[in-house]
């Protein structure tokens, strides 16, 4: 990834040295990593919005409004995945590591896979296998 904004569902205060949330809809904050010319330029966070049943499109709307171009999840349901695709946000998958920094570095290096339609899981989020 050369340029763009990566979003990571995070627990607590988030940040590059923080930890990922297993359920993106229920995360505390989203950590944003702005990438320029293949390098991390800036790190910021935004508060997640309230999660309600059936509110899968709320985070889609939130991240699209902040011009996110890529999202890294541990798992995701079909509806939010289709929503992110519709607004042009690429969804990448890593269900092994809880730390934010290594998955961001892998995405920038082109080592993370985009999630496939047949990899969707239930519950609107899924869990990291950690």
């Amino acid at each position: 990834m050369e340029n763009g904004r990566i979003a990571i569902p995070s627990i607590g205060n988030g940040g590059l040295e923080g930890e990922r949330a297993g359920h993106f809809g229920h995360c505390d904050v989203f950590t944003f990593i702005d990438v320029e010319n293949g390098a991390i330029k800036e790190v910021s966070t935004i508060q997640n919005q309230e999660h309600v049943q059936g509110g899968c499109m709320v985070p889609v709307n939130l991240l699209a409004g902040h011009k996110v171009s890529a999202l890294i999840v541990g798992g995701i349901g079909m509806r939010p995945l289709m929503g992110f695709k519709q607004v042009g946000i690429n969804v990448y998958h890593d269900d092994q590591r809880i730390e934010i920094k290594p998955v961001v570095e892998d995405l920038i290096a082109g080592k993370l896979e985009m999630i496939e339609d047949n990899q969707v899981c239930g519950g609107g989020g899924g869990a990291l296998n950690m």
Binding site: Q53, G54, G55, C56, M57, G77, M78, R79, P80, V120, C121, G122, G123, G124
Partner: peptide
Amino acid sequence: HEASEGLGVLT
């Protein structure tokens, strides 16, 4: 819940 998981059904 199991049958509709991931579909984001409101209710």
